[in-house]
């Protein structure tokens, strides 16, 4: 089991976002999470990414409870692509990727290589601020290729991607799911995007996983 959420409740700013949410994600599984705007999909991803500690309930990742030591141990195995690309505007795409590479002890060439993999080698020296939404998204995907996480969390990953880049997402997802002990969670409000890609679709409604739809 890659992740197991049990009766998770999240209150933020005095508002309940998730309530009594339970979800288990098995090894090799690709799970699609559907839900309306504001239903708590992104919050669910942040809980899975250990960035939000639930108000109550338990979260287990890679078989570990998330106490301080557990969080430290599992974090490097998680890759998150949030709503907005996690790039420093005033660094070039290559510098952004190399920063991550150096922080995890990978050579700079690896950073350049993954940029090439997502088709950005010719834009490598462009400042992130000067890149389009879709380019930033691709650069973020390159980061996931670089860090090789065991749990990949993708939030509206198709947003802003051109048709050329959509297979890239499929490719990343399949690569991750095929890896030993890895799994993938995709969040979207468009069921069509997820249908072909996911083993299983779940819907977040009223703060919990309400419907489970096998595909």
């Amino acid at each position: 089991m890659v992740a197991r959420l049990d009766a998770v409740r999240v209150d933020r700013h005095r508002i309940t976002i998730l309530r009594d949410l339970s979800l288990a994600i098995a090894v090799g599984e690709v799970v699609g999470v559907l839900g309306a705007n504001g239903s708590g999909k992104s919050t669910l991803l942040e809980v899975l990414a250990t960035l939000i500690r639930p108000t109550s309930g338990t979260v287990e990742l890679f078989g570990r409870r998330l106490d301080a030591a557990g969080r430290r141990a599992v974090r490097p195995r998680i890759g998150l692509l949030g709503h907005t690309a996690a790039l420093y505007d005033r660094l070039t795409l290559a510098e952004n990727l190399r920063l991550v590479a150096r922080l995890i002890g990978q050579p700079a060439e690896r950073a350049d290589a993954v940029l090439a993999e997502v088709g950005l080698e010719r834009a490598a020296d462009r400042l992130a601020v000067a890149c389009s939404q879709g380019m930033r998204r691709r650069a973020d995907l390159a980061r996931v290729l670089l860090t090789r996480p065991g749990l990949v969390l993708l939030d509206e990953v198709h947003a802003g991607l051109d048709p050329d880049a959509v297979p890239l997402v499929d490719d990343v997802v399949r690569t991750v799911a095929g890896r030993d002990g890895a799994a993938c969670v995709l969040v979207s409000h468009e069921p069509d995007r997820l249908a072909g890609l996911c083993d299983r679709l779940v819907r977040v409604r009223s703060g919990r996983v309400e419907v489970e739809e096998p595909t």
């Binding site: 960035l51 974090r75 998150l80 907005t84 690309a85 991550v100 922080l103 860090t147």
Partner: peptide, 12 residues
């Protein structure tokens, strides 16, 4: 920003 903080946390 929050996104950068998340990435930094997740790369250890």
């Amino acid at each position: 920003g929050p996104a950068q903080r998340a990435v930094l946390s997740l790369v250890g």
